[in-house]
Nucleic acid binder design. Sequence first.
DNA 1: AAGCGAACCTGGCTGC
DNA 2: TGCAGCCAGGTTCGCT
Length: 291
Amino acid sequence: MPELPEVETVRRGLEPAMVGARLASIDQRRPDLRFPFPERFAERLTGRRVEALRRRAKYLIADLDGAELLVMHLGMSGSFRIEKAGGPGRAAPLLGGAPKNAAHDHVAFGLSTGSRIVYNDPRRFGFMQLIARPDFAAHPLFKNIGMEPLGGELDGAALARLFAGRTAPLKSALLDQRLIAGLGNIYVCEALHRAGLSPRRPAASLARKDGSPSPRAIQLARVIREVLEEAVAAGGSSLRDHRQTDGTLGYFQHSFRVYGREHEPCGQCGGPVARITQSGRATFYCGSCQR
DNA sequence: AAGCGAACCTGGCTGC
DNA sequence: TGCAGCCAGGTTCGCT
């Protein structure tokens, strides 16, 4: 579920509850998720104040008042739930997924405000790490992460430079987090459809021989920013019953033009949306208007 | 070195 | 109704 817009939606939902609060208690219910939890995880977190909650690529980063950062990744199925102080029985806000089974509540942060933040992740592809603040940029998790698509750097020239010489299909290059950070399967499919570009086209075909951006590169950069901004504004999307801060559904799923729409008519030309497999992942696209 | 397929794990859906 | 098989938003590893 979580691509950049979903992680950003989760960040915005958690921010008012977490920032400024102290982590009064940590309930860690298993030794690992995708990776083992850090040594003495609960001990290192207990008593720390959360000073800020940031996002980099698909990572959530809590700045703590000590020397460490708490880095969290939601994997495929991770979500957070906020349990407000004194409110059992009230509908709990859900962030980033659809937790149903308390057996998959793996970590709960008890806050000094009395609220609890519960992390649920059935598939356990998510993980949490503690890293020293000065090591942040050089840390293995972050040193090879590419540019933020909404950070103001992503334009046609940047795409042309990143994709120059790459024989991989455009779809695969856009999913490569070392180049652009935060795009996932849904938004890559959606952006390519909006740009009228085939996912099978070699990535290098967006650069000219001299490395300058083609009009296609300029257009693709524009629609990547556009689709992500629209999705963030809509509170992310969901394939099932993803909810955001106030418990309402993330709405962007209703705006998919190709993702999950195999055999349905393309909104542009009426032709059928095709589904192929690239690098082991499903790609949805219109074979007649994406060239 | 880049690119690709498999692996990690569980749940939900489809079809027999 | 039961069950086998397939599929899923991401990342990493290991093999060409």
